[in-house]
Amino acid sequence: MPTSLADIKDRLDHRIGEELMVISQAGRKKTTERHGILKETYPAVFVVDLDQDENSFERVSYSYTDILTKNIQVDFDEAANE
């Protein structure tokens, strides 16, 4: 489990170009799932190019703080790597 923002960024830096799913809190008991590809990492945020079949917009960015505070969960698609 990552314990710092630098650790989270480092882990994501090594997975650029891979498919992932981002699960985010959309309310008290509601979550949203978005599928895409990890495109870029910056000092404070990372960018995901979204699957156009599922989403009305092309990209979304999240902060590393979102992962640390568990506002979002990032799961890499292990099936794509088999």
Score class of each variant (00 low, 15 high):
K39W: 09
D7I: 12
S63V: 04
R59H: 14
V48H: 01
A26L: 00
T31K: 10
E54G: 06
K39N: 03
V45F: 09
R11M: 14
E82I: 09
S56I: 09
E18G: 02
D51N: 15
I8D: 02
S56R: 13
S24A: 06
T69Q: 14
Y62H: 08
M21I: 08
K9R: 15
H14A: 13
A6E: 15
K39P: 00
D66P: 02
Q52W: 13
E18R: 15
G27C: 01
D77V: 14
D53Q: 15
I37Q: 07
I16D: 03
K30V: 03
R11E: 14
D66S: 11
V47K: 12
E58T: 13
I23H: 00
D53F: 15
E19F: 03
D75P: 01
G17C: 02
V45Q: 04
L50C: 09
R28M: 00
D7R: 13
I8N: 04
D13K: 15
L20Q: 07
E19D: 00
D66I: 00
T69G: 04
A44R: 10
K29Q: 05
K39A: 08
N81C: 00
F57I: 15
N71H: 09
T41N: 05
N81Q: 09
I23A: 01
L5K: 12
A79W: 05
P43M: 06
N71R: 09
A44N: 06
Y64E: 05
F57A: 13
E78V: 13
M21V: 03
S56W: 12
K70H: 14
E58A: 15
S56Q: 12
P2K: 13
P2N: 06
S61G: 06
P2D: 03
L20G: 03
N71V: 02
E19K: 10
R59L: 07
D13L: 12
H14V: 13
A80T: 08
N55I: 02
T31C: 04
E19H: 08
K70F: 07
A79F: 05
L38I: 00
M1K: 12
I72W: 02
V74K: 03
K29C: 00
Q25F: 01
N71T: 03
Q73S: 08
I8S: 06
Q52C: 06
L5H: 05
P2E: 12
F46C: 02
V48C: 05
K30H: 04
S4N: 14
S4E: 06
V60Y: 03
E18L: 11
T69L: 11
M21L: 06
F46Y: 08
T69F: 13
D75A: 08
Q52P: 14
T65L: 10
R15K: 10
L50D: 10
V74N: 04
A44F: 09
V22P: 01
A44I: 07
K9N: 11
L68Q: 11
Y62W: 10
Q25L: 04
Q52S: 12
F46T: 01
R11A: 13
P2Y: 15
E18S: 10
S4A: 12
